[in-house]
């Protein structure tokens, strides 16, 4: 078990080091996300009445697109010098590779979100301290990363890489987007924990199901 986790973390640290060196994904996705938020902010000319209506949607549209952009890279990077095969030759079961890449995507997304969040809150004139929103963001992002890692591996094997991921990714994560937007809506419009709980349950259920299923089917996705 320790060894299993050790291998997962080895893959994660390798990705982190590689990303830290180039900042290729983080910089471009971050720039994209910030631009989207700013454009929405101008487009809606939000005053205090409409903010509550549009802000949750804006936030999750931004996270979803940013997620697709960064996840698309996960396996493209591995494909470049055949590194995916190098990983597949390592004496570990295929699900170790899944968990390693999933955690890499998750952490990268969370770092990007951590920067985008304050900008979003300031632009939309919202209070800066919202721990409940952080929980929703974490659960939603975990959902994105669980599905995204699986599909990114699938898309990397197809010719139309850049097209394939969004086309298969969006329909599947719709439940996450809906639940996350509803929960965010409740938080921004002072809903109670009780009202939120059913949406949080959907998020948690989705995350658990997709993590387990993805880890199981991953080997069939990456092997020819």
């Amino acid at each position: 078990m320790i060894n299993y986790l050790g291998k997962v973390m080895t893959i994660f640290f390798k990705d982190l080091l590689s990303e830290f060196r180039t900042k290729a994904v983080a910089s471009s996705v971050l720039l994209f996300a910030i631009l989207v938020i700013i454009i929405f902010n101008f487009a809606f000319e939000s005053d205090s009445d409409t903010i509550g209506l549009v802000a949750p949607g804006v936030l999750w549209v931004t996270f979803t697109f940013a997620g697709v952009l960064s996840m698309n890279r996960t396996f493209v990077v591995e494909k470049e010098k055949g590194c995916l095969e190098g990983l597949m030759l390592c004496p570990v079961s295929r699900d170790v590779l899944y968990w390693g890449k999933m955690i890499s995507s998750l952490v990268l997304m969370l770092i990007i979100e951590a920067v985008v969040f304050p900008i979003f809150l300031i632009l939309f004139d919202l209070p800066l301290w919202m721990p409940r929103l952080a929980i929703v963001a974490l659960l939603g992002t975990l959902g994105f990363a669980s599905v995204g890692t699986l599909f990114s591996a699938l898309a990397a094997n197809t010719k139309a890489r850049d097209m394939a991921l969004p086309i298969i990714f969006f329909p599947v994560v719709v439940p996450v987007i809906i639940a996350a937007v509803k929960a965010t809506d409740l938080i921004l419009n002072s809903g109670t924990w009780h009202e939120m709980s059913s949406w949080l349950e959907i998020l948690i259920a989705f995350d658990v199901i997709f993590l387990v299923v993805s880890a199981l089917v991953f080997e069939f996705v990456i092997e020819e």
């Binding site: 060894n3 055949g82 004496p91």
Partner: peptide, 25 residues
């Protein structure tokens, strides 16, 4: 050893070997 090198361009030779070495215990 295959047609492709299985090496990460962004990492140094040492980091590449260290990564694979850890994966192989």
């Amino acid at each position: 050893v295959s047609h492709q090198t299985f090496l990460y361009d962004n990492l140094t030779a040492y980091e590449n070997l260290k990564f694979y070495g850890k994966m192989y215990d």
